[in-house]
């Protein structure tokens, strides 16, 4: 088993295993320092981000929306976790020179061509559907996938199977046609 890939990356087994350790340390640290066990997750932050943006135009609407009240529009632990992911990825990619400005992903360009506009529309619409689904399911591959399975949650196992099952089905339908 190689621990390093050709471009300076780490074996996914090594990097993944370290994320497992990070998740446990984080669960312990949040329990001790915040008084409540927090597990890694990402999608609720998008609700808060939406709340912050909507507040600029319609503050009273956000204040009276049941879902924003439930999830609380605030710069909480998870919001900073998401900002941290950005910073961590930036540091890692600059350090090993894998940082690359990319306007269209290669696999997308292979199927749909190099148009940034097409990619933007696809990513935007896909994003709407995916996040609507993640909020309905109450989690994403981080919250349900990683954190749910580590806790042996029934919901996490079912959700992760659906994420990948339907993801594979749609990916085959959408990207396999030309090649």
């Amino acid at each position: 088993m190689k621990l390093e890939s050709k471009d300076g990356g780490w074996s996914p087994y090594l990097a993944g295993g370290l994320v497992g350790i990070l998740a446990v340390v984080s669960a312990y640290a949040t329990t001790i320092l915040m008084g409540k066990t927090n597990f890694l997750g990402a999608s609720t932050t998008f609700v808060r981000a939406a709340g912050f943006i909507e507040k600029l135009f319609a503050e009273s609407h956000v204040a009276s929306n049941l879902y924003f009240i439930k999830e609380k529009v605030a710069l909480d632990w998870q919001f900073l976790l998401i900002i941290g992911i950005f910073i961590g990825a930036l540091i890692a990619s600059l350090a090993d020179r894998s940082f690359k400005l990319e306007s269209v992903p290669p696999a997308w360009a292979e199927r749909f061509g190099p148009s940034v506009g097409k990619r933007a529309i696809g990513a935007f619409l896909g994003g709407i559907v995916a996040m609507f689904g993640a909020r309905l399911a109450d989690g994403c591959p981080s919250g349900h996938g990683l954190s749910g399975l580590m806790q042996l949650s029934v919901s996490g196992i079912v959700a992760l199977c659906l994420f990948f099952g339907i993801g594979m089905l749609v990916a085959h339908l959408v990207y396999r046609r030309k090649s």
């Binding site: 696809g122 990513a123 619409l125 896909g126 994003g127 709407i128 559907v129 995916a130 996040m131 609507f132 689904g133 993640a134 909020r135 309905l136 399911a137 109450d138 994403c140 349900h144 079912v158 959700a159 199977c161 659906l162 994420f163 990948f164 099952g165 339907i166 993801g167 594979m168 089905l169 749609v170 990916a171 959408v174 990207y175």
Partner: peptide, 12 residues
Amino acid sequence: GGALFGGGWAIM
């Protein structure tokens, strides 16, 4: 929700 996420994920 899981199915919608999977579908959107594949496109995004």
